[in-house]
Design a protein around this nucleic acid. Sequence first.
DNA 1: TCGAACTTTCGGAAAGTTCCGAAATTATCG
DNA 2: CGATAATTTCGGAACTTTCCGAAAGTTCGA
Lengths: 188, 188
Amino acid sequence: MELPPLTQRFVLHFGEMGSRWGINRTVGQIYALLYVSPQPLNAEEICEALGLSRSNVSVGLKELESWRLVRLSHQPGDRREYFSAPEDVWAIFRTLAEERRRREVDPTLSMLRDALLESPGHPDDQHAQRRMREMHDLIELVTGWFSDVQRLEPETLKRLMRMGSRVQKVLEFGDKVRALPARRAAKE
Amino acid sequence: MELPPLTQRFVLHFGEMGSRWGINRTVGQIYALLYVSPQPLNAEEICEALGLSRSNVSVGLKELESWRLVRLSHQPGDRREYFSAPEDVWAIFRTLAEERRRREVDPTLSMLRDALLESPGHPDDQHAQRRMREMHDLIELVTGWFSDVQRLEPETLKRLMRMGSRVQKVLEFGDKVRALPARRAAKE
DNA sequence: TCGAACTTTCGGAAAGTTCCGAAATTATCG
DNA sequence: CGATAATTTCGGAACTTTCCGAAAGTTCGA
């Protein structure tokens, strides 16, 4: 691997972090490289740059595709596939959040939904079910809110985030102004 | 393992998910058990309930402690340690978010900060650094906002989340009302 | 301070993951 | 329809993680 120094540091760091992110070192390195690369790269170039075997890179790219984190493109008069990360870092963030949700929370949510339909006989299971309901409600609230917010324009989202906890003020204020039954929030 | 059926399903599910969450099966099962258990459990009881070795449970509990996800308690006249999950599922959620941030994003943020102080010589590194800045700014914005919001009361937070994307409206509204230099947001 | 009750650490077997090179497969061009 | 370039799959070696039982360490009452 002979990359310019900053790029190298970035790539190696992502490789190390890979395990914590639930992807492996190779996949982390590949994505880091694509992310900072000024132009799309083909598989061979990735092997070259990172000192990985061709097959390993192939599998790594498939993995990244399954995360919807890479874009494919072609160069005229060249039938190799070229890979790149999306330009917009917010798009990457959103995809990551969506995929993580799909893999890490949806299965649990559906398991909880099923469990809540049962009528437990054992008293311990009755308590367990109450706990599951608490967890279920929290997850629904958080993920539902997340997908709402994800539909906002990046600019709106940025503005919202920069407000931080000052939203609270606005919220209270808004409440007072439109304290009319017709405009009340749906649930609760 | 002979747990009542609902509890059993919950425990097994968390075990399976464990790998996706970055903890292992055993740790997932232990936490699931503590979460639904009507009272604190000692290590021996956990072994018993889940059919795990004593040492394995010991390590698993240490792991959960390092995540700050378990509470320790004692029974009068019994010097074994009793473990439980916090009552409040929001507290669990917050701890999880904080720890994940600490482990999964802070190291990257600090690596990026360092990288942004350099003056890259290679042109590819100059591009790389621009990309790193984009990533850095996004992470700072998101995590900063997160820690702001985390300081809100759970009730306020719930209200905020139930509003979903309607916040946008309130935001625009608030903007119009207090369109005075003195109250402008700090950054932009 | 001794010993019983707990807890943790250690060493290694079993299981799982990563990653390579070779072989097989697929796609594209003449 | 081959020939050839590109990609994917396969089999197995190297490495890592998980998890047990045994040994060592800690804590606390008598």
